[in-house]
Design a protein around this nucleic acid. Structure first.
Lengths: 418, 418
DNA sequence: CCGACTTATTTCGCGTTGTGATTTAACTCG
DNA sequence: CGAGTTAAATCACAACGCGAAATAAGTCGG
């Protein structure tokens, strides 16, 4: 019963504009002829639609490809430098605002620390608003070229008809914060500028799908391991969110009935074994308390995890044991993803995932092979994420870009003197 | 980069035909006015499209609804008795062929036992072919009214451009059987009659989604427990299959690292705890070997499982312990589904699932609440399947019906004298 | 029983779309 | 420089959905 977005003959054109625009964006540059061959559109229609796109400044002709006795094909490309998107990463310790061109190259960035976490909503909104104005000024970019703003937040994002996007962030103490309304009231986001708010892990996954380890895959899982453990499940090219938008809670799937206690209250969660916090704790339990080889209490989790890896490097058996166990649980978790989702690709990311993965990936793959069904395992590619843990803002910026490509249109004109 | 099925203005009409047809099929009877109100189509278009549908014999006017001072609304309905679909269930012990009207009411059925399992492909094809001819004769139905044939098989179904649907069935010894080609060659399926072949668990899930426990849900999981354990994951109203079409292998997700051995070769699989075979085996291990209260070795798995339930009923501690453990593992498995998929609905089915669920569902729900994240658990409805374990054929018949509704058209005319 | 009123459905003219056929443009090669 | 070749644009046409207007089919009050 999916409501069609396709009724009038005009929507048909929009759909075809979008089709050509997407192909040019992801696979460009291409000639009109390439478009004719690879889409089912007729030559006449391609010519018409491309003409419109060029007229609207979305596409530009760029050089031509040599011919062998005929008229050369003119190459077309989306005019990426002309349009801009903004991505915002609301982290637990800082707000990052970045200005991108349409192909998501960074033009400007502003970063604001959040000393007391982001519990104070007004402060966060204020930082985001300053950041927006800041990057616009720094990039010397006109508002009219901005196609939209994407925001990645650490929480579940629901949508209500009146308030727009509403954020529920258990870890940062946000309870039903109407972030969309607050941001619009702050004024930095023009009234009719598209504003997309989504979970930060999802936007990171989206970034990996477009530009990183997930590139080209239809069905994939981006597994994110930080202090906690989550996953961005991509089905048919788009993140799958579930009914309450909280799908992908990989970290709280049980891999050991009656196992270690997890901070979620349950026992035997995957996160209780492979999350950074859990790995560090397990090492503390097993490892030498006041060992001279490593600082007994690292200031940061990053440091502590690095210390464990270093200890293993030096051949300390306690570290090796903890990491081996971690690899086994991680492999089991990955196998579960393989068996349930049968994805084309699985990428391990998050700061801890990258740190651990660099060392443990071969062993994780080995364990996953043991636990996953043969057929499904044979069809999956397991790798590390490629964009680093700071791609949340870039991922957030993919949201307006995706909207832009789907609509196949320039941003709505801002009405003067209304 | 999904290829649009929408290019010309004619496809637009097809899409709108399909939209109205689907609404009438699932929510009918409805008046034209209802359609105008609920589908963004204009009155003029609704009138035109409905006129076409009536002209093609797909829709019929059926009575009218009382008015209050104006012209009464004429009620429309899909002309279900006029069209037919066939569903085939290829089970491990028998082939079942059923003839349905478009609303999937049974008109005729033929059942053929398969004494030696369905290893002999030719025998199976022969039985299906006989069944097709049989139900057509028994139902006294003309070939032209058949919109298609759906077949549910116990295996993974791949699609190749040359051979059509190819079945890989590990449990029945089928290795790349080109069932589509074989069936077409047998002749019972006319050349241009749509033929859909899919995994039996998936078709069963589809049946539950349309007419059973999943009715009305967009995102759901139909969990099937028989001798083995599987699941049909429904995303956005359609079964999710994954890259290699083997998604939903819930039974082989690990819930106990280093736990019981599973027949898949891994350890700690969910199936090794809650599958019928596993439950029976666990009872044999724990229970009194030659207890006078129950037959020591039941002939069938159904009987053995029923005996365990009966033993618990009588207060035997061994049976109670095994079933309690089963409920815990089942609850954990369900919680994992909830956390990963965040579905709207989870239905427990399969012959063993229904048998166990009738007794254990409250306890399973309790355990799932403990292990699942609060938010996701609060949004899920956990119930038993409603159609029984024999709805595979009906589910298979939904495949051609879905195709019929999606295309919005009558089956292609069979060309005479070609 | 009639006429005003109300509501449902169909009809009509228009603007927009994609298409195939045709025309025009742009280049290579001898 | 002209024949040959391929790319892109143009044109006439048929089909579509839409808003407005016309028509159909009732109710209700008298």
């Amino acid at each position: 019963m999916a409501e069609r977005v396709m009724r009038t003959v005009r929507d048909l054109r929009r759909s075809n504009r979008s089709l050509l625009l997407r192909r040019l964006y992801f696979d460009g540059p291409l000639s009109r002829q390439d478009l004719i061959d690879t889409t089912t559109l007729s030559a006449a229609s391609v010519s018409n639609v491309v003409g419109d796109l060029i007229g609207d400044g979305l596409v530009a002709e760029v050089g031509s490809v040599g011919s062998e006795g005929g008229r050369p094909r003119i190459l077309l490309q989306v005019d990426c430098p002309r349009w801009h998107a903004i991505g915002v990463d609301v982290g637990e310790t800082r707000v990052l605002v970045e200005l991108f061109t349409l192909d998501l190259a960074v033009l400007a960035r502003e970063e604001y620390p959040l000393p007391d976490g982001c519990r104070d909503v007004a402060a966060v909104v204020d930082r985001i608003d300053s950041g927006l104005r800041g990057v616009l000024a720094a990039g010397a970019v006109r508002q009219e070229t901005i196609i939209g703003v994407g925001v990645g937040v650490p929480g579940v994002v629901a949508h209500s008809p009146e308030l727009g996007a509403v954020v529920h962030g258990q870890t940062i103490g946000w309870d039903a914060v109407p972030l969309e309304r607050l941001l619009r009231e702050a004024g930095g986001v023009r009234a009719h500028l598209p504003l997309y708010i989504d979970n930060g892990a999802t936007t990171l996954g989206q970034a990996e799908m477009w530009f990183g380890a997930g590139r080209g895959a239809r069905d994939a899982v981006i597994a994110l391991i930080g202090s906690g453990v989550g996953a961005c499940v991509v089905v048919d090219g788009a993140p799958y969110r579930g009914t309450g938008r909280s799908a992908g809670e990989w970290g709280h799937t049980t891999v050991q009935v009656g196992g270690r206690s997890c901070r979620c209250g349950a026992r035997g969660c995957l996160e209780a074994y492979v999350g950074a916090e859990a790995v560090i704790e397990r090492f503390r339990e097993v490892g030498p308390a006041g060992s001279p080889s490593g600082p007994p209490a690292e200031a940061s989790e990053e440091g502590a995890l690095a210390a464990i890896l270093a200890a293993q490097e030096r051949g300390e058996p306690a570290a090796a044991a903890v990491l081996e166990e971690t690899a086994v649980y991680l492999g089991v978790g990955v196998a579960n993803l393989i068996n349930l989702f049968n994805p084309e690709r699985i990428a391990l990311g998050g700061w801890a995932g990258l740190l651990l993965g660099a060392r443990l990936l071969p062993r994780v793959r080995e364990v996953a092979r043991e636990y996953a069904l043969r057929h499904a395992f044979a069809n999956v590619e397991l790798s590390l994420c490629q964009l680093g843990p700071d791609a949340v803002a870039r991922g957030a910026a993919t949201l307006p870009v995706a909207g832009f490509l789907a609509a196949g249109s320039r941003p709505p004109r801002n009405q003067s003197a209304s």
